[in-house]
Simulated assay, not measured.
Amino acid sequence: MELRHLRYFIALAEELSFTAAAQRLHISQPPLSQQIRDLEHELGTVLFLRTSRKVMLTEAGTAFLAHARSIMASAELAATQVKAIGQGMTGALNVAATGSMLLGPLAALMAEYQRRFPAIVIGLHEMAPDAQLTALLTRAVDVSFLRLPPADAELTRETAWREPVGVFLPAGHRLAGRGAIALSELSEDGHVFLRLRDSTFADYLRKCCIEAGFMPRITQQVIEAYSLTSLVAAGFGVALAPRSVSALSRPEVIYRDLVPPAPAADVSMVYARDQSPVLTRFLSFARRFLAEWRAKQ
């Protein structure tokens, strides 16, 4: 028994006319009659009573109609679901990022993606940068948003958005009245840093300080950027941070840009080379969304 047999049977059962059913199926009557005979032969029972004037379902035919409709509905649902999965319209997407990434366009990107593709289940996983790379390589997550990710032959990276680095200062700092500050002017201060062992971005900032003529005196190291302002306010020193993190500023802490050329805090989308349909669709959507976001900045 094939789905074709069921489709022909349902058409005839609903039309109760070989002529009308054949027209509905866009075939001639002889093939329709033959398919119905084949189905009845396979089932070992008569499904239709045929007279010169009309066609009627038998009791067996009436019972079989409900099953045939159910089978066809299940087959259509399966085809629709498989097609949706293949086109990246349904499934799961796991995104890794540090919490501070949500201060930029990432939160809005994910919200709009969820609105456009409600059948996709999105999981956001807050992780330290090195943990994100491990999760990508083990396929625990699909895409990660990282600042200055290290090169890896198994991973692809592309710029998501660009962002400069500035500095958090205590409100009473000697440079607080400046509009912009040269990195070299922070050589005498203690520095609160992102944890060096977790972050290539933190290591990059340290190298920028060295290039500016000083080795930063690191007083504390933190995992998340939103911890920086609390420690700066408490008097542990100053903190270099991406501009988006300035949204976390508080009365006793101020944020100032650095004099160009300032360190960059550019964010990359990082993902495995073998992409699922869901990831392929997300990346395409993200590129368009972020391009529009950049145009508005």
Rank of each mutant, 00 (worst) to 15 (best):
T45R: 11
P31F: 05
N94E: 11
D142L: 01
A96V: 06
L25T: 06
G104I: 07
A96N: 03
S28K: 08
L133T: 09
Q81T: 12
M127F: 10
R53W: 05
G91C: 05
D38Q: 15
V95M: 04
I120N: 05
A13D: 01
M101V: 07
S100D: 13
Q23C: 00
V46H: 11
S33C: 08
E42D: 12
L124W: 05
G104T: 04
Q114A: 14
Y113P: 05
Q34G: 02
L102R: 09
P31W: 00
R116L: 14
R53G: 03
F18E: 02
E2V: 06
A119V: 14
A20K: 11
R50W: 06
I36Q: 01
H5W: 04
T62Y: 10
T58F: 03
L102V: 00
A63T: 12
L103M: 10
S144A: 15
F64W: 09
P30R: 07
E42G: 11
F48N: 07
A97P: 04
A79L: 10
E14G: 06
V46M: 12
E59C: 03
S33A: 14
L93G: 05
R139D: 08
A20L: 10
L49Y: 13
H41G: 00
T80H: 11
F48I: 00
G86H: 10
A60S: 14
L93S: 05
T134K: 13
E42L: 13
L43D: 01
H5F: 09
L3W: 10
V82T: 15
N94D: 13
A63Q: 09
D38N: 14
V55K: 07
L133Q: 09
M101Y: 04
T45P: 01
A96Q: 04
D38M: 08
L39Q: 03
L6G: 01
G123L: 05
L136P: 01
